[in-house]
Write a protein that binds this DNA or RNA. Structure first.
Length: 169
DNA sequence: CCAGACGTTGTT
DNA sequence: GTCTGG
DNA sequence: CCAGACGTTGTT
DNA sequence: GTCTGG
């Protein structure tokens, strides 16, 4: 079970993971925290949607973003194993972000990298040319994405359940 | 040379 | 572990 | 990102 | 107002 928040293998303290939730596609191959995972430990994180917050009238309105097919999809990720304690290794992951597609860009300037099924398979192959990997990290086709506002109860991560993704206006 | 950072804009 | 900044 | 704390052992 | 924790 991967925990979100990538803890680099060299970290002295697992707390660094809290700041390693996302990795930018533009720099993931260079950054010390991610580049080794980029070479050897790529993964996909499956979801049926994600949230972005849109600043409007001094408030941040959360939006639920998903595929028009309502099917789950793969997000490009990296994982690490951190083995600096007596405990079993801590396995963690990060989600790669890229420039928002045109429609999502109205809400927020970044979005997770969504991979279609064949590309997801490519992404997790052991040996890949770094340039080919980077080329996979594009924003997803706007035509296939839908978004709608949801209730602000989603702002508290303790809140769970299907009502969080119901449309609210 | 050593000290300090190592990342992104998010909720796991 | 490796790079950057001082 | 938002929610919640924010501090010390105390008297303007 | 700003920082920390989740």
């Amino acid at each position: 079970m991967l925990k979100w928040g990538l803890v680099p293998f060299w970290a002295k303290d697992a707390a660094i993971g809290a700041r390693m939730i996302n990795a930018r596609a533009e720099t993931v191959a260079q950054k010390p925290a991610f580049r080794q995972a980029f070479k050897r430990r790529r993964c996909v994180i499956l979801a049926d949607g994600f949230y972005e917050w849109h600043a409007e009238d001094g408030r941040k309105t959360p939006y639920f973003i998903s595929l028009k097919t309502d099917r789950p999809f793969a997000m490009a990720g990296l994982w690490e194993s951190w083995d600096k304690t007596d405990q079993p290794p801590l396995e963690t992951c990060a989600i790669i972000t890229t420039t928002a597609s045109k429609s999502i860009g109205k809400l927020h300037d970044r979005m997770p990298v969504i991979l279609d099924a064949p590309t997801a398979t490519d992404w997790i192959q052991a040996e890949r040319d770094p340039d080919a990997l980077i080329a996979m990290l594009k924003s997803y086709d706007d035509e296939d994405i839908q978004a709608w506002p949801v209730n602000r109860t989603v702002n508290n991560p303790a809140n769970q359940g299907p009502t969080l993704i119901e449309r609210a206006d």
